[in-house]
Simulated assay, not measured.
Amino acid sequence: MPDEEKLLANRWRLARELRRLREQADLSGRRLAERVGISQSKVSRIESCATIPTHAEVAAWAAATGLSATAAEKLGTLVDPAYTEIHPWSSALPERVHLQHDIQEIENATGVKLVYEPSIVPGLLQIAEYARRVFAQFEPAYPALDVPAAVAGRLDRQVALFDPSRRFEFVVTEAALRFRITPVDVMLAQLDRIDSLSTLENVSIGLIPQSAPALTHVPHGFVIFEPADEEGGTLVMVETVHANLTVADPGEVALYKRQWSRLKESATFGGSANALLRDIAAELKALPPESVP
């Protein structure tokens, strides 16, 4: 079963179980809503799988319908699979040339995008040759004929940066800017691109200097997608070595937001960030020719 179908099946399983419990307890939607502390319309949306309840709401639902502690705990285990999508690269990539359009669909519904990257330049800031090298080094490997399409898809997503109605915030470590994924001339062009994009009013680029005191430790990058309208839910996307994870559970999303705040507090912005870019560029230019890959 494809990952999307598994997620939908998990959500419907939770929705049907919650409705069964309400009906078994002989409670109307209005009465249950009063006991759980939510609106009657939300009860309806939950039971029709239009809204996914939080862990706290499911626990309150269990208490309102008289479930035992053991049964309530079992009910709680249905929540996480309804919130988290796991897309292994080994199964996701063979189904399509690349995933850039999938990400773009999420971005199109996003009002604010928060990006943390500790190891490489974020995709929306990459120049073409840098992106090509990233895709060429990916595992499982992209077929050589598919790499140009993946690069073009990534560059096409960058058009959104110039839409003033949307906001993009990036926090990138100094180590990511120094990671030598390309020859020096390409790295210099990449640093210049970051400097240029930082002048956009709707784009914020913060850099965490290696000398900055650490306020937290996050070993992997992540992206927070905040919806453009109140009806949507905030999502977090995490790329791991083996899979892409999409997290929607409010409690877990809140954890990533707290980490984002700490990382942002460690970052430098504006003139200080531009000075750091210039320092890195100067060090690259000073490298002896024989050390350039």
Rank of each mutant, 00 (worst) to 15 (best):
P140S: 14
L287F: 03
V247C: 00
H217T: 10
A160P: 02
L27Y: 10
A176W: 09
W61G: 12
D80H: 00
E107V: 01
A64T: 04
V203K: 10
G221C: 02
P94S: 02
L18P: 04
Y142E: 07
D192F: 05
P293R: 02
A275L: 13
R30K: 13
A267V: 04
T77K: 07
F225P: 01
V186R: 05
P143A: 09
A59W: 02
E17W: 03
D229K: 12
E5I: 11
L125V: 07
R258G: 06
V236N: 05
Y83N: 02
H217R: 09
A214T: 10
I38S: 13
E47V: 15
W260S: 01
E201C: 09
I181V: 13
H98I: 06
V147A: 04
E5V: 12
Y83W: 09
D26S: 11
T216R: 09
R180H: 11
T110L: 03
R22W: 08
A248C: 06
T84L: 00
S44Y: 14
A189E: 14
E283T: 03
R19Q: 15
P289V: 11
I38V: 15
V121S: 10
S165L: 09
V247G: 00
A212S: 15
S68L: 08
A62W: 07
R22A: 12
V134W: 06
T234I: 03
L191F: 12
G123S: 09
L191Q: 13
L7R: 05
P164E: 04
A136L: 08
H242A: 07
V121K: 05
E105H: 00
D229H: 14
R166M: 11
F170C: 11
I224C: 00
N10D: 15
H101W: 10
H55I: 08
P213D: 05
R180V: 06
P289F: 15
K264A: 14
R132V: 03
L8I: 14
W260I: 02
R31P: 07
G232M: 01
L124Y: 14
I103M: 08
P209E: 04
V253H: 01
E95V: 09
E239P: 00
A60D: 02
R30S: 15
A152H: 12
V184T: 15
V241G: 01
R133Y: 00
A56W: 13
P219G: 08
A281I: 15
S198L: 13
K42S: 02
V58E: 00
L235C: 12
L8T: 14
M1K: 12
F170Q: 10
A176G: 13
T110F: 01
Y130K: 03
R20M: 09
G123D: 14
R258Y: 07
A267L: 03
S291Y: 12
I46N: 13
S119N: 07
L8W: 11
Q100W: 04
H220K: 01
E265I: 05
S41N: 13
